[in-house]
Amino acid sequence: MKLVLITAITAFDSEVKAILKKIKVNTFTYKEVKGHKNLTESEEIENNWFAGEAVETDSTLFYAFVPSQQMETVFEEVEKLNSKQDIASKIHIAVLNIEKIN
């Protein structure tokens, strides 16, 4: 069993839920969060319409326990979805090993 963390902008909520459903993860948790990007050391600040140094984005953090044998499928589905997106924001995924579960 692995703990999967997925972050995405709120606009991708339904796509992430569809991925979880497709791999038969019917129980998961999600929470609205603020994504933050610091532009102070980036040339992007010059092109930033609002001229701010920090950008916050409405995002969602999903977490779910996923059987180990399903992990490759989750990554493939996220990669497929990211490859179809025309915007800079992508879905991010991380996996944590679970040593013990009760």
Rank of each mutant, 00 (worst) to 15 (best):
V74C: 09
T73K: 09
N102D: 13
A8P: 08
L5H: 15
L61R: 02
F50Q: 15
V55Q: 10
F62D: 01
H92I: 00
V16K: 03
W49I: 15
K2S: 13
K90E: 02
E46W: 12
L3G: 10
F62Y: 08
E46C: 08
A88T: 03
K22D: 11
L96W: 04
E77W: 00
Y63E: 02
Y30W: 05
E76L: 02
L3M: 15
K22N: 11
A94M: 07
A51L: 13
E15N: 12
F28N: 02
N47T: 11
M71D: 07
T10M: 09
V25A: 07
G52K: 14
K22Y: 07
L61W: 03
E46D: 12
I101Q: 14
K34Y: 06
K84I: 00
V66N: 03
T27W: 06
G52V: 11
K34W: 05
V78S: 01
A88C: 00
G52M: 09
K100C: 02
T60N: 05
I91H: 01
L61H: 04
D86F: 00
I101H: 10
L5P: 09
L3W: 11
I45Q: 09
K17Y: 03
F50E: 15
E56L: 05
A8M: 13
N82G: 03
I6P: 03
H36V: 14
E53Q: 07
N48P: 03
L81Y: 01
H36A: 12
F75N: 09
G35R: 05
E72C: 01
N48T: 06
G52A: 09
